[in-house]
Design a protein around this nucleic acid. Structure first.
Length: 270
DNA sequence: AAATATACCTGACTGC
DNA sequence: TGCAGTCAGGTATATT
C-alpha cells in the first residue's frame, strides 16, 4: 500500500524523467476518484512546465508556475512512466502526456486516490492540519512525548494519525512498534520518554530502509518505472500472524485496533 | 477536544 | 460453478 516510502520512491523515480518537461495534454478516462478529477484539468495543465515534484506526507505535488497538481495514490494507486502507444489496462484512469518521451499513467483499481489542481499549494486545506514529516528534524522524541500527553487512545492509531506525524500507515506502524518493542494497544499517555525516543528512532529507521528498498509491494504498488518494491521481504511483523518472531521465535499475534489489523510479538512487545 | 464510526471502492478470498 | 459475504486500507467527514 502506498505509505510514505512508496510515495517517495515514486517521486524519486519520476523526477529525473519529467522535471523540465511540458504537459502536452491530459487524458482522463475515469474521473471518479476520491474526489472528481477537475474536468478542465487538461486546459489548466496544457503547455505548463513541470518545475519540481515535491512530497508532503503521502501527497505528491507536481509544481508548476502558478500552481500545483496534487496526486494521492490512495491504497492501490500507482503513477508510472508509459511509452506512447503502450496498451491501456483496466484502471488506467489518467494519462498526462508530455511534450516528449514517455507519458505519466495513473492506475488505481480501488479509486481511493486523488488528482487535484491548486493555484496555492502552500495554503491548501488538505495540508492545513498535517503533522511534521517523520524524517525531518521537527519529529523528535521531545515532540512525540509532548504530543502523547493526555491521549487515551492506543499508540498504534495515534502513530497513524496524520495530525501527529504524516506518512505512517498500517504496515509501517506495525513494523515501527515491533522495532521499538512497544505493544500496539499500549495507552498513548503512558509512554515514557525512553519509549518515545525508541519510537522516533524506529519510525525513522523503518521508513528510511523501506525507501532504500523501493517500498513495499503486497499487491498493487509499482514505482515510476512499473517495478515492484522489495521491502516486503524485510517485514518483521506485518502480515506474519502465526509465524515465528524473528527476534525470539514466539508466534506473531494479531489484533484489531481502530478497524485495522495489528501484528505484534507478545514477548518482544509485552 | 478527542475518540470513534462511516463512507468511499474493487479484487481476492472464503464458505455454502 | 456461482454467489454472497468478508477483508484489505488512507483519510475526509460525521457522530458520539
Amino acid at each position: 500500500m502506498p505509505e510514505l516510502p512508496e510515495v517517495e520512491t515514486t517521486r524519486r523515480g519520476l523526477s529525473p524523467h519529467v522535471v523540465g518537461r511540458r504537459v502536452a495534454d491530459v487524458l482522463v478516462r475515469e474521473r471518479r476518484l476520491r474526489w472528481p478529477v477537475p474536468d478542465d484539468l487538461a486546459g489548466v495543465l496544457r503547455g505548463r512546465e513541470i518545475l519540481e515534484i515535491g512530497r508532503r506526507g503521502k501527497y505528491l505535488l507536481f509544481r508548476f508556475a502558478g500552481g500545483a497538481l496534487i496526486v494521492h495514490l490512495g491504497m492501490s494507486g500507482s503513477l508510472r512512466l508509459a511509452a506512447a502507444g503502450e496498451a491501456v489496462r483496466r484502471h488506467d484512469h489518467v494519462d498526462i502526456l508530455l511534450d516528449q518521451g514517455p507519458l505519466l499513467r495513473y492506475h488505481d483499481p480501488r479509486r481511493f486516490g486523488a488528482m487535484l489542481w491548486t493555484p496555492e499549494p502552500a495554503s491548501h486545506s488538505l495540508f492545513a492540519a498535517l503533522g511534521p514529516e517523520p524524517l525531518g528534524e521537527e519529529f523528535s522524541p521531545d515532540y512525540l512525548w509532548t504530543a502523547s500527553r493526555g491521549r487515551r487512545t492506543a499508540v498504534k492509531p495515534f502513530l497513524m494519525n496524520a495530525a501527529i506525524v504524516v506518512g505512517v500507515g498500517n504496515i509501517y506502524a506495525s513494523e515501527a512498534l515491533f522495532l521499538a518493542g512497544v505493544h500496539p494497544a499500549r495507552e498513548t499517555a503512558s509512554l515514557e520518554r525512553e519509549e518515545c525516543m525508541r519510537l522516533v528512532a524506529a519510525i525513522r529507521q523503518v521508513l528510511s530502509q523501506a525507501i532504500e528498498m523501493g517500498g513495499t509491494t503486497l499487491r498493487d504498488f509499482v514505482n515510476g518505472h512499473g517495478q515492484p518494491g522489495y521491502f516486503q521481504q524485510a517485514l518483521h511483523a506485518y502480515g506474519r500472524s502465526g509465524q515465528s518472531c524473528m527476534r525470539c521465535g514466539t508466534a506473531i499475534e494479531t489484533l484489531r485496533l481502530g478497524q485495522r489489523a495489528s501484528y505484534f510479538c507478545p514477548v518482544c512487545q509485552g
